[in-house]
Nucleic acid binder design. Structure first.
Length: 421
DNA sequence: TCTGGGGTCCTAGGACCC
DNA sequence: TCTGGGGTCCTAGGACCC
């Protein structure tokens, strides 16, 4: 049996742990740069704030309904996530961290000895008591069905108390008939449109399609999903592996045409990618750089281009990466456009301790030592204290984060205080 | 003024090899 | 009339997820 554990309205719940007076009140969390709404409490959902709502368009509604709005605080959410995952790991060694707020757990042979319903209750109690974050638990014979069971747990809290175990055939059929095709895990908007055209409206209808048809139109991914929903486990628990690509991309606060400005941004992105790679002990063989104008300004001339550059040898040296990234930028930058977004993506990642070197070019042996010390200093005295000369040393660039809460759990100076009268 | 960021997997087709 | 068979690797593009 698989369990899918999902934190309820995770970001909003994290904020509420440290501001309990927000319980029962509408809360919304914004994306980087305070751009869009990316998480909402149930109360905010009920007020009709959609996922992805541009913040500036909803400003009035936020004020009208006294919605508590936050900038995203990944230092806090990441740390709270790690705490939740650690508690879940107490229940089984077979744990897959699926996203910042979700985990699959596998229970092999448990159903012979334990009641899965009460196991779910224990997990819920443990996590909520230990972190303050409410969770929902769905348990079923396959991952796709566990996802569905979780949805039921969340949708009918009075009936399920946040835990739903799907064990019988009758339960499975009933659930599949209830689940709309566009809400199925693994069926996105494109497939949903096509399926609805064929009068496939529920997950149940989908499982009745011929294998050939599914294979042809939705590849083997769709076929696996069909089997999973039919009760045949095709997706196994995945070990947490190193990432296969590492990206740093940002929208700018406003549009820029100036090459020097964009060059600084792209250099900083390359350096950030280097840090992330060194953290997971990877080197990249390929670097991609992209640049684009503001797609929302329909009247302005649009331009967007990306380029991939093969490195002479796999590297995670920020110095090398900046060199390649700027070289790529030089090739794709065109004068006369108002740029809004750029990014650097490191691809072709290989383990740093086991990389294929090149015959005729080699890394400056000083780089690795230098990077090691830069990373150590930044860890010790604060991120970005040591910068490269190509970066924005005066820090004129700043992400918009006007409603940021404190880093309660990871920074001593921002720790929560209690007033004892 | 203002609209996020970071990932994964699969397939088709081209280029190449023996 | 008739021109093999079996592979690998890479890339672009499309779909999906949170």
């Amino acid at each position: 049996m698989f369990a899918l554990v999902d934190c309820n309205n995770f970001y909003a719940s994290c904020e509420r742990v440290f501001q309990p007076d927000l319980n029962g009140k509408p809360v919304a969390i914004l994306s980087n740069n305070d751009g869009c709404v990316i998480a909402r409490s149930n109360e905010a959902k009920a007020l009709g704030i959609p996922m992805g709502a541009p913040a500036f368009k909803y400003q009035k509604i936020f004020e009208q309904h006294h919605i508590h709005v936050f900038s995203s605080n990944y230092a806090l959410y990441g740390d709270m996530s790690a705490r939740v995952m650690n508690l879940l790991a107490e229940f089984t060694p077979d744990l897959e961290i699926y996203s910042i707020d979700e985990a699959f757990l596998q229970f092999i042979g448990y159903e012979t000895y334990f009641d899965l319903q009460s196991l779910g209750m224990q997990m819920k109690y443990r996590v909520e008591k230990g972190t303050g974050v409410p969770i929902s638990v769905g348990i079923a014979p396959t991952k796709a069905l566990a996802k569905l069971a979780n949805r039921i747990a969340k949708k009918f809290p009075e009936y399920t108390q946040g835990i739903y175990v799907m064990q019988t055939e009758k339960q499975r059929i009933k659930a599949l008939k209830w689940l709309k095709i566009n809400e199925v895990w693994g069926i996105g908007s494109q497939h949903a449109i096509r399926l609805q055209k064929h009068n496939i409206n529920t997950a149940f209808d989908f499982t009745k399609l011929p294998d050939d048809w599914v294979r042809k139109h939705m590849t083997v991914v769709g076929l696996r999903l069909k089997k999973e929903l039919s009760g045949e486990a095709c997706l196994s628990l995945e070990e947490v592996a190193n990432k296969k690509a590492i990206a740093t991309t940002r929208s700018f606060d406003t549009q820029y045409e100036d090459f020097e400005y964009i060059k600084e941004r792209v250099s900083s992105f390359a350096i950030a990618c280097g840090e992330k790679m060194r953290k997971q002990k990877s080197c990249c063989q390929v670097l991609m750089v992209f640049l684009k104008t503001n797609k929302f300004q329909a009247n302005a001339p649009q331009y967007g281009k990306s380029i991939t550059i093969k490195l002479a040898y796999p590297s995670n040296s920020s110095i090398d990466l900046v060199k390649y990234a700027v070289q790529g930028l030089n090739q794709i930058y065109a004068k006369g456009f108002q740029y809004k977004k750029a990014g650097v993506i490191a691809m072709g990642l290989t383990p740093a301790n086991n990389r294929q070197l090149a015959l005729f070019s080699k890394e400056n042996p000083k780089h690795q030592k230098l990077m090691k010390h830069v990373d150590a200093l930044n860890r010790r005295i604060g991120n970005e204290k040591i910068k490269f000369a190509c970066q924005d040393l005066k820090r004129t660039w700043k992400m918009r984060q006007e409603r940021l809460s404190k880093r309660y759990t990871t920074n001593l100076s921002e720790i929560i205080t209690a007033n004892c009268k």
